[in-house]
Simulated assay, not measured.
Amino acid sequence: MSNEFLLNAESRSDTGKGASRRLRRLQDRVPGIVYGGEAEPQMISVELRELKKALENEAFYSHILTLKIDGKEVQAVLRDLQRNPAKGFPTHADFLRVDKTHKITMNVPLHFINEATSVGVKKQGGEIQHNISEVEVSCLPQDLPEFIEVDMTDVELNAIVHLSDLKLPKGVELTQLALGADHDQPVAAIHAPKVRASESDDEAGEEAASEE
Rank of each mutant, 00 (worst) to 15 (best):
N3I: 14
D14N: 13
D14L: 14
T15G: 09
R24A: 09
D28E: 14
D28N: 15
P31V: 06
G32I: 07
I33M: 10
V34S: 03
G37D: 03
Q42L: 15
Q42F: 04
I44P: 10
I44S: 08
I44L: 13
L48S: 11
I64E: 01
T66D: 08
L67D: 04
K68C: 12
G71I: 09
G71H: 09
Q75G: 06
Q75M: 14
Q75E: 13
L78A: 02
P85E: 05
P85M: 10
K87Y: 03
P90R: 03
H92S: 12
A93Q: 02
I104G: 07
I104Q: 04
M106D: 00
M106F: 00
N107A: 13
P109Y: 04
P109A: 11
L110N: 07
F112K: 03
V119F: 02
G125W: 09
E127A: 14
S133R: 12
V137M: 04
S138T: 15
S138G: 04
E149R: 11
E149P: 02
T153D: 02
D154P: 02
V155K: 07
V155R: 04
D165K: 13
L166R: 06
L166G: 11
P169R: 02
P169C: 10
Q176Y: 01
A178V: 05
L179W: 00
A181R: 08
P186R: 06
P186E: 08
A189Q: 10
I190E: 08
A192C: 00
V195A: 12
E199L: 15
S200Y: 01
D202L: 14
A204Q: 12
A204G: 01
G205C: 07
E206P: 00
E207L: 15
S210H: 07
